[in-house]
C-alpha cells in the first residue's frame, strides 16, 4: 500500500511523461498484487493485463505522437487542493460508519452474495463464482461492458481514421531499431505462439480458474501487439486485415446478444441460458461459453485495432516529417 502511495505521489511531481506512464504501469502492477492479496484473483489478472499491459502500451504509443515532456505550467494548485481536500474529507467522514475491513458480518456478506457462493454450483455448475456471476447472474452487465469496449473501438476508429493513401506507407517490413535485435526477435517468435495459446487457454478455462473472455481477449491482443512491435505493422496487417477486425468487433457483441435473443426465442427471458439445452446446467455451460467467446472476440479485436490505429498514426507522422 505504501508503495502505491509513493508511486502516485511520484507521478504528481514528475514532468517526464515517459516516466509517468511507466510509473502508472508500475502502479497498476502493484495494485494487481494488492487485489491478489484481497482474494480477487480475476480482478488482479485483469488489472495486470490491462493496466500494466495494454493501457501502458497505448499511453506509450500516443506519447510517441505527442512528445514526452510536460511543460511547466501556471496551474493553480490551491483551488484544486481545496476541492480534493473537501472530497477526501467527505469520504473519510463516510468511512466512519463503515463495516470494518475484512469483517465477516458486513451487510454485503449477508445479503445477495451468499446465494452466489452457496447455490451457483447447483444452478450454474461453474466453480468460479466470479464467472457465474459475471456471465450469468449479471450477464446483462457484461453485455453492457462488451458494448462499452465496442463503443470505445468505434470512437477510436472514427477519430483516428486515416485516409486510404497514407495507410500503406509503412513499406519497411521491420522497424529499423528492431532489425538488429535478432535474439529478441527469435525469442519473441517462440513466445508469441505461446502467448496466443495461453490466451486461448484462459478463454476456455475461465469456468474453473481465474480468467475468461475479457482477460483472454487482452492477452491475445497483447500477443499480436508484441508481434507488431517486433515485425512491423504491415506484416501484422497481413494476418489481421482492418476490415475483418472491424467486423469481428461487431461480431463479438452480436454473438453475445444473439445468445440472448435465441434464449428469448426458446421461451426464456433475455440471456436466460437455462433454455438453451434440456438440462439447465448444460444450458448454462453452453451459454457462458458462447458469451465469453463473444467478449473475447470483441475485446481482442478492439484492442488490436486500437493499437493499429495508433501505430498507423505514428507511421503517418514519420512520413510527414
Amino acid at each position: 500500500m505504501s508503495f502505491l502511495a509513493l508511486t502516485a505521489l511520484a507521478i504528481v511531481r514528475l514532468k517526464d511523461l515517459f516516466a509517468v506512464v511507466m510509473l502508472s504501469g508500475l502502479y497498476s502492477l502493484l495494485s494487481a498484487s494488492f487485489f491478489l492479496s484481497l482474494d480477487a484473483v480475476d480482478v488482479a489478472f485483469t488489472e495486470a493485463s490491462v493496466g500494466a499491459g495494454i493501457s501502458t502500451l497505448l499511453f506509450l504509443a500516443s506519447l510517441k505522437l505527442v512528445g514526452r515532456y510536460e511543460k511547466k505550467s501556471r496551474y493553480k494548485p490551491a483551488l484544486a487542493l481545496g476541492i480534493v481536500m473537501v472530497t477526501g474529507a467527505l469520504l473519510v467522514y463516510g468511512t466512519l460508519d463503515m463495516p470494518h475491513f475484512g469483517a465477516v458480518d458486513a451487510p454485503i456478506h449477508q445479503h445477495v452474495a451468499p446465494r452466489y457462493i452457496n447455490d451457483s454450483m447447483t444452478e450454474i455448475g461453474v466453480p468460479n463464482a466470479v464467472t457465474s456471476v459475471l456471465a450469468s447472474y449479471r450477464g446483462f452487465d457484461t453485455l453492457g461492458e462488451t458494448l462499452v469496449i465496442f463503443t470505445a473501438g468505434i470512437g477510436v476508429m472514427s477519430l483516428l481514421l486515416v485516409s486510404r493513401q497514407t495507410k500503406d506507407q509503412s513499406k519497411k517490413k521491420v522497424p529499423a531499431d528492431m532489425q538488429q535485435q535478432i535474439i529478441l526477435r527469435v525469442v519473441a517468435k517462440m513466445m508469441i505462439p505461446l502467448i496466443l495459446m495461453f490466451g486461448l487457454y484462459v478463454q476456455f478455462h475461465g469456468d474453473y480458474g481465474p480468467g475468461g473472455g475479457f482477460q483472454a481477449g487482452v492477452i491475445f491482443a497483447a500477443g499480436v501487439i508484441l508481434y507488431t512491435m517486433l515485425f512491423g505493422l504491415s506484416s501484422a496487417q497481413r494476418v489481421f486485415k482492418r476490415q475483418i477486425l472491424e467486423l469481428l468487433t461487431a461480431f463479438g457483441v452480436l454473438l453475445y446478444g444473439g445468445v440472448g435473443v435465441v434464449s428469448m426465442l426458446l421461451g426464456g427471458n433475455f440471456l436466460d441460458y437455462n433454455v438453451l439445452r434440456h438440462d439447465p446446467v448444460h444450458g448454462q455451460h453452453l451459454g457462458i461459453l458462447l458469451v465469453e467467446l463473444g467478449v473475447g472476440i470483441t475485446v481482442a479485436s478492439v484492442m488490436i485495432l486500437v493499437f493499429f490505429k495508433f501505430t498507423w498514426r505514428t507511421v503517418k507522422h514519420k512520413y510527414n516529417q
Partner: peptide, 30 residues
C-alpha cells in the same frame, strides 16, 4: 457496502435501516 444489494427496489427497502449512518449520507452526496 451498507446494504449488500444493488437492486434499486431492494435498496429502497433496506436503506431505511441504515439512514442514520454517515456512510449513506456520504454515498448520497457523491
Amino acid at each position: 457496502m451498507m446494504t449488500g444489494t444493488l437492486n434499486m427496489y431492494d435498496l429502497a427497502q433496506r436503506l431505511p435501516e441504515v439512514y442514520k449512518s454517515k456512510t449513506v449520507l456520504c454515498a448520497f452526496g457523491f
